[in-house]
Amino acid sequence: MNYQQLLVIIFIVAIVMYLMRMLPLVFCKGKIKNRFLQSFLFYVPYAVLTSMTIPEVFSSTGGVISATLGFLVAVGLAYFGQGLLVVALSSTVVVFVVNQLAAFFKF
């Protein structure tokens, strides 16, 4: 493929991507009145983030054991009200340590 083709592809994909992100923000300025739609949109983020996490999180770290422990640490810390940075860093550290141990002890 030559550069001209690649550039056309990148620009077209970029436009589609941008429109998906931007149009709902611009065209849905007012408050939605319908109670069902309101409720639906209220629950959407939790449902989307959950289905993005499960089950993908368990294959995100190169090992099911480290991923599971990282996942449990994240859930536990989030449950006790820790912020994003603490949750993200702690689970990364746990995953890193477990991965190192796994490599060392070959489990």
Partner: peptide, 14 residues
């Protein structure tokens, strides 16, 4: 190890 970061963030959100 940082592969878990986005998921940890989603968890901390929900």
């Amino acid at each position: 190890a940082m592969g878990i970061v986005p998921f940890a963030m989603y968890i901390a959100t929900i």
